[in-house]
Amino acid sequence: MRIAYIVSSLANSGPIIVVNDLVHEFVLHGHSCDVFYFDDKVQLDFPCYVQKINFTDHIDWKKYDIVHSHGFRPDLFVFIRKPINRIKTKFISSIHGYLFAEQYSIWGTIRTFLSGGLVLLAIMRHERLVVLSKGGVRFYKRFVKFSKIKYAYNTTRIIDLEGEISTNDKNKILEFKENSILIGCNCGMSLRKGIDMLLKALVTLPDFKLVLVGNGPDKARFEQLSKQLGIEDRVCFMGYRPQAYRFLKYYDIYAMPSRSEGFPLALLEAAACGKYVITSDLPIFLETFSESEIVTFKMEDINDLRRALLSYTEQAVEAFQDNIKKRFVEDYNPERFYDRYFKIYKELMR
């Protein structure tokens, strides 16, 4: 099978990581892959041919069995450049989140519906839409013909569980932790990720400290909030780090208090490492892991978040860590990920 992937850039970000995983798995299984991208942001290596493009460039679609685009610009490129005449090549788009909900938190009502409408327009000429969960199918069938939608869970990257962070970072984390229970969160610093809830919960939990790895538009807001709450000495902002999963071994608890998620790649990394995980009660978390594998709290309920954090005990940790790692191996390993996408591609080619 010959596949073309079209992405916005080669940045180390969620949707591009998924494409990177896809390419690695399909190349490993003997398929031919090419990757086309728009922006000069190159952070991930792909084991195949890659080419920077713009909207005036021509791609010989007939060379490919499948063209798989990820993101608005790649989808729009397909919308504009796909031949009017019928060809054997099949076009697929993946949407990596909940369209209107995620944009509303950034742009407000009018821009959200305008931009959301453009995204839906851009995928009109694709034969298939892939979303990341069963919940995603229920959401998008309101806007897209149901028979056109498929879902596929992500996997985690091929991560080096023995890999180590820098000596400076390691010393900083260990000195910061001391004898506390250390909560960790690797994510973009935005309100959508619910970091403000963690900071508020920390106020009455003097035995807990928090490490945040990542940058984002609301990082300064969170730094200011930690000062206002009087907990700045128990919060460590590490900033962006490549391969942030390498910090997982130093956390006692991995927290994902998100208000919205397409698919929780960071949660899969924590599961692969067998961490004790606390999440909000988002449907995507409840779909991907059970109550015997993660501890959940009610969204926006700071007291319930405190309750979840205080559930951290030696006995609970051992059971949950075993369960979540077993679930990852059974349902979210790279082979399952490949099998699901191969089935979607093959069905479309018939």
Rank of each mutant, 00 (worst) to 15 (best):
L10A: 11
G14W: 07
G14D: 09
H24E: 05
G30F: 07
D39I: 02
D40G: 00
K41Q: 04
D45L: 03
P47I: 02
F55T: 05
D60L: 08
Y64P: 08
D65K: 08
H68G: 08
G71E: 10
F72Y: 14
P74C: 12
L76A: 11
F79K: 04
S93Q: 12
L99Y: 05
E102C: 10
L114V: 15
Y140P: 06
K141H: 08
F143W: 12
N154K: 10
N154P: 09
I158W: 11
I159W: 06
D160Q: 15
L161C: 11
E162Q: 15
E164V: 06
T167H: 11
I181A: 05
I183R: 03
G188S: 14
L191Y: 14
D196F: 03
L199R: 01
L199P: 05
P206L: 10
G214P: 03
D218K: 12
F222M: 14
G230P: 04
I231M: 00
E232N: 10
R234W: 07
Q243Y: 11
A244N: 07
L248P: 00
R259L: 06
G262Q: 01
A270E: 01
C273M: 01
G274A: 05
I284P: 02
F289V: 04
E293M: 09
I294V: 14
M299S: 10
E300D: 14
D301W: 10
L305S: 00
Y312T: 05
K325T: 11
V329P: 04
P334Q: 10
E335K: 10
R336A: 13
E347H: 12
